Simulated assay, not measured.
Amino acid sequence: MNLTRSFALVLALGLAPAAFAEQHSTEQTTDQATEQAKAPAVVEMTLGAPDAAVEIVEYASFTCSHCAAFHGDQFKKLKAEFIDTGKVHFTYRDVYFDRVGLWASMLARCETPRFFGVSDLIYSKQRDWLSGNDPVLLAENLRKLGKVAGLSEEKIDACMQDGDKAKALVDWFEANAKADDIDSTPSLIINGTKYSNMAYPKLKEIIEKELGN
């Protein structure tokens, strides 16, 4: 999927539908608005040994079908063969094409230790929860996935209605995408070099070369 649109509206439309009425129902003072602008830091989601010889950063979107295919195939093989064996340190970074991708990210990040488990569920069920164009229905589909993953309803609502986190995630995404010149998903940065999506044999070949094998 190509990055061909402006992301200015993603933040404006960032919160899940249930949050809109609450978000806009009361006026805010200048001090309150300033306080909300102090967005929290975003935690990097990583797997593997921090001192591994190969560093891989994946840029992906939860609404990207190619990313779902990557996580259903190449990523599982990568994890088993290189991440779990201490040869690769892996970092996942979000790309937001739309507000729905942002909502999915906010759900996956509800509890940091569960991130990769929840993200795997979101990708594996992408065709189911992403069907249709009704934002209310899509948000409800994501909430259902959160419950399947073991998150409480209260936790899910708090995560998906966190305006400060939404702002922080969008700012973080834009800074990363600009720094690494990301123009499509999935994209991989392997020891500083950018690659587009590829079949696992090619990915393995690149990693083995970086390992000196």
Rank of each mutant, 00 (worst) to 15 (best):
E154N: 10
D157Y: 00
H89W: 01
Y123R: 00
S119V: 07
L121G: 02
C67V: 05
A139H: 03
A68N: 06
A175K: 14
Q23K: 14
F75E: 06
Q32E: 14
M106G: 07
L138R: 12
Y123P: 01
G101L: 03
E55T: 13
L138I: 08
F70H: 14
S124N: 13
D84E: 15
A179W: 03
I122C: 09
Q36H: 10
K144H: 13
A139D: 04
N176Q: 09
P201E: 04
A53M: 01
P17G: 05
A108S: 07
F97V: 12
F70W: 11
R109A: 08
A199I: 10
S105F: 01
H71Y: 03
A8W: 07
A68I: 08
T91R: 09
H71R: 00
M1Y: 08
D51H: 07
F115Q: 03
F20D: 07
Y123W: 01
S6V: 10
D128L: 11
L211F: 02
K167L: 15
C67N: 02
A69W: 04
S6F: 11
T29P: 00
V43D: 12
E140R: 09
G163Q: 13
D73Y: 00
E174D: 15
T26S: 14
G86R: 04
L138Y: 02
W172Q: 15
I122N: 09
T112N: 14
T46H: 06
L138W: 02
F75W: 13
G117L: 02
K87P: 00
I156G: 10
K77G: 10
R127I: 12
H71E: 03
T46N: 08
L203N: 06
A37K: 15
E35G: 01
I156E: 07
H66V: 01
H24S: 14
C110L: 05
D31M: 10
V100D: 12
M106T: 03
G163D: 12
K125M: 06
G48D: 02
H66Q: 02
Y96E: 07
E81K: 09
A12Q: 15
V148I: 13
D73Q: 04
I206E: 05
I207H: 04
E154A: 15
E153M: 07
G48N: 01
D183W: 05
T46I: 04
L107V: 05
D157G: 02
F116R: 03
C64S: 11
P135I: 02
E27Q: 13
D164W: 01
S196W: 09
V118H: 03
D183E: 07
K194L: 04
S124Q: 14
F97I: 10
Y195L: 07
